[in-house]
Amino acid sequence: MTMPNALSIGAARGAVELKQFFRERSSVVFTFTFPAVLLALVGSIFDSDALTGAVGGGQVLTASFAAAGIVSTSFVNLGTALAVERDDGTLKRLRSLPMPPVSFFLGKIVLVVVASVAELVLLLAIGVLMFDVALPSEASAWLTVAWLFALGITACSLLGIAASSLARSARSAGVMTTLPYTVLLFISGVYTPIQTLPDWMAGIGSVFPVKWLAQGFRAALLPEHMAAQEPAGQWELGKVAVVLALWCVGGLVLCLTTFRWRSSLTR
């Protein structure tokens, strides 16, 4: 009999995570409706051609919110879930099982990938139906979406895992992830054009991956002439890839140095 390896155990754990997630209806509804409702509301308010030529504000926001949805399903949801599981002792019990730690995290990543794909499809559907977003027909644009998706969920998932250790209890878990997420949406050019932000605020936003992920999705989903609306006057996809890759490395280092299986309040 062949013993299961870490990958197969991770896949099995991913199936368990998906079943648990979809059984919690309130969590499912919040996960998928929060970015979608924000896009519908904010997009309707700013859906004007005045500042962007032939491209409406709703179309620009759809591209930016594609990034926001990925950050929500990875950083916010994963970080919150791990903090809650640490607080109620779930992580401690799982650690005592004969399951490699890498398999546990692979299971979490399976959930993040499935939720992120569903979120992205939902946001693009809203953009098409409400704001006349024209999905790209070029294979190169979808290839850009693919590598942005891969780097985005990797970096934000790792940062979510690291951030989960900052919460001292389940009650503070949501605050530790939702607050920085909301602030970053404002200072990263998701809600408003980044040119309208104070220089110091835009400078802080440019340090974090949300700004670059949103810029990358605008490059993939908007016409080429919209690059002139970016601070640098171009899409800078090479720089986007480098920054996101560096955050993947940095997130991994933070995970390895900060993640803990037990609550600090456990005696």
Rank of each mutant, 00 (worst) to 15 (best):
D49G: 10
S64R: 14
F34T: 15
A67E: 04
M99E: 03
A54Q: 11
G69C: 04
K108Q: 15
V102P: 08
F34E: 00
L39G: 03
L122S: 07
G89R: 09
V102R: 14
G57E: 02
V42W: 15
A36R: 05
L78I: 12
K92E: 15
A36D: 06
A67M: 11
A68R: 09
A63K: 00
S44C: 05
K92D: 14
A83Y: 01
G53R: 06
D88L: 05
L91M: 12
K108C: 08
A118P: 03
L61R: 01
L94G: 09
N77D: 11
M99T: 14
V112Q: 03
L124Q: 02
N77I: 13
Q59C: 03
L38Y: 08
F105H: 10
T80M: 12
V37W: 11
I109K: 06
P100N: 11
R93V: 13
R86T: 08
A63Y: 07
T90G: 02
V117E: 00
E119Q: 15
L91R: 01
A50N: 08
F46R: 07
A81S: 14
T62M: 01
L38W: 14
S44P: 07
M99G: 01
I45L: 15
A63N: 03
K92R: 15
A83Q: 03
G127P: 00
V113A: 10
F75A: 00
G58L: 05
V71Q: 10
R86C: 04
V60L: 12
Q59F: 08
A66D: 04
G53M: 08
P101C: 05
L91S: 04
S72Y: 15
G107P: 04
G58D: 04
